[in-house]
Amino acid sequence: MIFNRSKQLSDEAVLRLLKSGDKKNEQKALNSLYKEHYGKVKNLLGKMNANEGEIQDVFQDSIIVFYENVLGGKFELKAKIATYLCSVARNIWLTRFKKNQRVVSQEDFEKPENMMFTEDLDELFLDKERKTFIRGLLSLISEDCQKVLTMAIFYKDSMKEISQKMNYQNEQIARNKKSRCLNYLKNAIVNSKSVMETLKELG
């Protein structure tokens, strides 16, 4: 496999960039993470009979788990990022394996030492219908609202950070905006007949 082997970032640098809250830095860190560790995860999952598409999917989900733990302050650099990603990828793969009714013993599952998963790994994997539904819901609110809510809820940015990124005059404006946007979304969910129907159907 001939992947770009240009100089990759150190683990410390990746963490610093991911925590910086800057989109360009995030892209740089994700690029480095992906190119540096994809081969390792591919080797690992390849031995577990995963195909190329499955490996790609699992690897990307592993990076998301890792990233969310970094954002949530739950990741400590006590082991190499590579070790962590391989461990997460292995567990995700085994979860799917189990789902497909292939027998897996509990001992097969590992949790990297001192590293907690933010939530059930299973929750990450949405089917196509749910993805479409979520995209549809988000389209009901403005782009600015999407940004503010994503910063506040997913990236866990403080109101100060949000006000800086969104060029608001102060934190209070950011706080108000977040609250308003969340209400828009809640109302959009409840007031839209089609959304309610889809919600019930999906359930």
Partner: peptide, 20 residues
């Protein structure tokens, strides 16, 4: 609503990773 936001961010992140 919060779950929807989280999942949406993950979907976008996954698209970003797909592009990489």
């Amino acid at each position: 609503a919060e779950g929807v936001i989280k999942h949406h961010a993950r979907i976008q992140l996954k698209e970003q990773l797909g592009n990489i």
